[in-house]
Amino acid sequence: MADSQLLTDVRALVGREYGRVYAWDEVNAPMIRQWCEIMGVDNPLYTDAAFAANSAQDGLVAPPAMLQVWCMEGFHLNNYAPGSTTENPYEVLKLIESYGYPSVVAVNSELTFNRNLRPGEKLYYTTRLDSVGDEKTTGLGTGFFVTLVMNYFVEHKSGDEAVGELLFRVFKFRPTQNHSAEAAPAKVESAPAVKRPKPGMSDDTRFFWEGCDAGKLLIQRCTQCQTLRHPPAPVCIECHSFDWDSVQASGRASLYSFVIMHYPEVAPFDHPNPIGLIELEEGVRLVAGLVGVKREELNIGQPLQLEFQTFDGELTLPMFRPVIA
């Protein structure tokens, strides 16, 4: 049962509003174009001014899914735009952790859009601790579901306008441990080793994972127009044909982009955990782990080489290692 003082302290925080976090820049066409390029979005409403001017939108708009992007801190941790609050909206997680609930896992995130954003608009968001649920026991362990809501606004001289909302929910928990009921305290059984989660497999993706098991990186190819595509899909994005085969990638690649996962620390992954957006020599991109490199050694565009690693004796994944000149 949860500590009564913990419940008192947590409930005192529910409903608290945290200050503004400002965007570094106005909504702008270059960022929209780069985001669309990276995400593979090809909608002229976002990038073609002439097309957008003659549409129902009457001009360029930003992709709705970019809402969170505008107010992000940037490349360096906690490097928020001038004027942003220094309050920590995640203080409730630290509070719960101090009572012996050390682990966290993201549960879900929901974006709500009131309207499209347009170039030239300047955003900020505020954060509200929406709720902390009662103590729950799940397969992961015992803890609390914590929900935060970020409300996004566009600044106007006549009064700021709410344009969207991000709901973010996590589970802050104490991991389940297996204890022998009859054993003395000195003989507490250790928890089983956590295995890497297996990817979802369907008829569309089975060839890819079977290829990994065989030490081959297979890329789907349309047999009608020869277009390569990844992730695998049932229909060609160019000619809409359902006919396809696969080709084996050479394994030569370059680093198109990357992130370093610091928090939360999720077993069994190493931390910090570098994850790359890999551009294969053949022209398609995929997300994969980076090995044999430190954060300060990563550079956009650096050459990489494929290698396969097997985890838990059953899961083979494509990983990429920097090529040493």
Results as ranks from 00 to 15, higher is better:
56 A>H: 15
91 E>Q: 14
50 A>R: 13
43 N>R: 05
11 R>G: 07
120 G>P: 06
48 D>V: 12
21 V>E: 01
72 M>G: 04
21 V>G: 01
119 P>M: 03
12 A>S: 14
91 E>K: 12
130 D>P: 04
104 V>Y: 04
65 A>K: 10
26 E>S: 13
53 A>T: 10
53 A>E: 08
45 L>C: 07
48 D>G: 15
21 V>F: 06
82 P>F: 01
92 V>M: 09
83 G>C: 03
130 D>Q: 13
122 K>F: 00
69 V>A: 08
62 A>G: 04
127 T>H: 05
117 L>N: 04
105 V>P: 00
118 R>A: 02
102 P>H: 06
23 A>W: 01
69 V>W: 08
11 R>Q: 10
82 P>K: 09
84 S>R: 09
14 V>Y: 03
103 S>I: 04
30 P>M: 12
77 L>R: 14
91 E>A: 13
71 C>D: 00
94 K>S: 13
128 R>T: 13
80 Y>E: 00
89 P>I: 03
80 Y>V: 01
76 H>L: 06
91 E>W: 11
58 D>P: 05
73 E>Y: 12
60 L>D: 02
13 L>Q: 09
32 I>Y: 08
67 L>A: 01
82 P>V: 01
62 A>H: 02
109 S>R: 15
23 A>T: 03
88 N>K: 11
112 T>G: 11
100 G>S: 07
103 S>G: 05
20 R>W: 02
72 M>Y: 07
12 A>F: 12
97 E>A: 14
51 F>I: 08
107 V>L: 11
110 E>C: 08
44 P>F: 09
55 S>Y: 06
37 E>Q: 14
67 L>S: 03
61 V>L: 06
37 E>K: 13
69 V>R: 05
52 A>E: 04
87 E>M: 06
124 Y>H: 07
27 V>F: 00
67 L>H: 04
95 L>K: 10
111 L>S: 02
110 E>G: 04
22 Y>S: 02
59 G>E: 01
22 Y>Q: 04
15 G>L: 10
123 L>V: 03
114 N>V: 04
15 G>A: 11
15 G>M: 10
68 Q>T: 14
66 M>R: 12
53 A>I: 10
91 E>T: 09
12 A>T: 09
